[in-house]
């Protein structure tokens, strides 16, 4: 796992906040209880929706909390890429192509090594390795041919003939990298970019985040956030949260509906809002960033079922 230096960049593309670097994704999850939503297709596993991959879409709330606390900064990825690739110099391009060739050759060697490993394992499993090795001294390995197992036949004979695959006759694979760094260098921190625009449920989100809770979008349960006591990889969620304004009037039926639904799925319904009349407190982060917050009150609602 690579190391991440703070503040890390968050890509802004068409008004959405995305992470492409796996190290940053893992880091944000471990260190800043920010899990976002994976929206990408996993290569080679592109016919299912259960496990998804990079990129990770951050809620504007998540991006804003990370930026307010000085852990991250926004990068305008459209501008960066327009400059970086559409106006790329010849030297940069050739250097990049050569770099990709090197990576491709590595990948090619790696896949060859894996193929050999697998073949050796398969042979071992069938207890054929010893008999095949003996056969190599003789003419054709007729026994293996009769097995009809083409893969093991091919792979077992080749390393026998050429003990080490020479690099020169390997065709480098082509690689689509996940991020654009390299060839682009990380853009400098630009404080001029506006903070992500957040809905009015943001105070509740920030409050729960500051208490160490993990949040995911609440669409599936018809609320603003589904709130987890720990990493959603390991824990069930506890709350279906809806953030409201302090004096906002809302339908009593929402409480009934939320309360019943929440109880039905072993969670409780959470309402919360920020008190605008209270004095703002300045919260200081470890890295010197400070943010003014007002107290938030929360109420948990459960279907009593008496």
């Amino acid at each position: 796992m690579g190391s991440v230096t703070e503040p890390f960049p968050i890509s802004r593309i068409a008004g959405r906040y995305l992470l492409f670097d796996i190290d940053v994704i893992s880091y944000a999850r471990r260190t800043h209880n920010t899990c976002g939503v994976l929206i990408g297709t996993l290569p080679n596993l592109s016919q299912q929706n259960v496990f998804l991959g990079i990129p990770l879409e951050l809620m504007p709330e998540e991006a804003r909390v990370l930026i307010e606390r000085g852990h991250a900064y926004i990068v305008d990825d459209e501008e960066t890429h327009r400059k970086g690739f559409l106006q790329m110099s010849r030297e940069d391009r050739l250097a990049y192509l050569q770099y990709m060739d090197e990576l491709g050759l590595e990948a090619s060697m790696e896949s060859k090594r894996k193929l050999e490993e697998r073949a050796a394992k398969a042979l071992k499993g069938k207890d054929l390795s010893s008999s095949l090795k003996q056969k190599h001294a003789g003419p054709a390995p007729s026994e293996a041919t009769s097995n009809g197992d083409e893969e093991s036949l091919f792979d077992s004979s080749e390393p026998g003939v050429q003990p080490k695959a020479s690099q020169s006759n390997l065709i480098p694979h082509f690689i689509t990298p996940a991020t654009s760094y390299p060839p682009l260098s990380h853009p400098p921190v630009d404080r001029g970019l506006p903070l992500p625009e957040v809905p009015r449920s943001y105070p509740l989100f920030r409050y729960m985040h500051s208490k160490g809770y993990f949040s995911t979008p609440g669409l599936r349960f018809g609320c603003h956030y589904t709130i987890y006591p720990g990493d959603p990889l390991r824990f069930h969620s506890h709350f279906l949260a809806t953030g409201l304004d302090w004096d906002e009037e809302f339908d009593l039926l929402d409480v009934i509906g939320g309360g019943r639904l929440g109880t039905g799925v072993k969670k409780s319904y959470l309402l919360g809002g920020e008190d605008p009349t209270a004095d703002a407190v300045t919260e200081q982060s470890d890295n010197g960033a400070s943010v003014e917050v007002r107290p938030v009150r929360t109420f948990s609602i459960e279907w009593a079922g008496m």
């Binding site: 890429h81 690739f85 996940a178």
Partner: peptide, 13 residues
């Protein structure tokens, strides 16, 4: 001869 497009670049584009 063109530079490979990364996943990030593809989203940006």
């Amino acid at each position: 001869d063109g530079a490979p497009m990364s996943l990030q670049a593809a989203y940006a584009a």
